[in-house]
Amino acid sequence: MKARYLLPLLAMVSFASSAMTLSSQDIQEGSRMANTYAYNGFGCSGDNQSPQLSWQGAPKGTKSFAITAYDPDAPTGSGWWHWQVVNIPAKVHSIKRDASGHIKGADELTNDYGSKGFGGVCPPAGDGMHRYEFTVWALPDAKLELPANASAALVGYMLNAKALDKATLTATYVNP
């Protein structure tokens, strides 16, 4: 393989070995979330609170963060976006439980329930266990430029295109 092709491949491999970590006092990797984080509607009766999240190990050059919460198991053909928060200042490295709407300087975008902010977990009754991927993204720009009505697909595209690094915590939920 020619040397000019090797450098881009090495850059992709180094991104795969993420230095960032994401943790939570409220949810754990692979464990079922409490009803505190479930939606109140669509056949679910939860408190619709976003979980506490903390992250560390952001790469040099990080000027902002984004948080997404996504259900890849939703029976839609395209998953379900529960939360998209962009333009979180670089000095922020944790958020409290029920922080949706209270992250200073951040912009919360429309979730797949059709409202801005966090929309709790709520798989269809009897659909089995769903995974919920909470991801924190380290970004090189202080502000991610998006149209006011940006779709989840556009936000995902921009995050993947610009991310310096990311860390994901995957929890589960079952709606009997």
Rank of each mutant, 00 (worst) to 15 (best):
H130L: 01
W83T: 06
S78F: 15
V121A: 14
D107G: 10
F118E: 03
C44A: 07
G41E: 03
V86E: 02
D47R: 12
L109S: 05
E133M: 11
A74R: 11
G114N: 02
D127C: 05
P72G: 05
D47E: 14
S78P: 00
S64K: 12
D112T: 13
D107R: 14
M129C: 02
S115D: 12
W81D: 10
Q84F: 13
T62M: 07
E108G: 11
N111P: 05
T110S: 04
P59D: 02
V86G: 05
G43H: 01
S54G: 00
K60V: 14
E133K: 13
K63F: 11
F65M: 06
R97L: 10
N111L: 04
K63Q: 14
Q49I: 00
Y113H: 13
K63D: 08
N40E: 03
N111G: 08
S100T: 15
W83V: 04
S94G: 09
A69Q: 02
T76K: 03
S78Q: 14
I88A: 00
S54K: 12
S45Y: 08
A106R: 08
K96G: 10
Y70N: 06
G120S: 08
A90D: 12
D71I: 00
G101M: 07
E108W: 15
G117A: 05
S50L: 04
I95R: 02
D98S: 10
W80C: 06
D127E: 14
G79P: 04
K96F: 15
D98K: 09
Y113L: 13
K60F: 07
S115C: 03
K63V: 14
S50N: 06
A66D: 05
M129A: 14
Y132C: 02
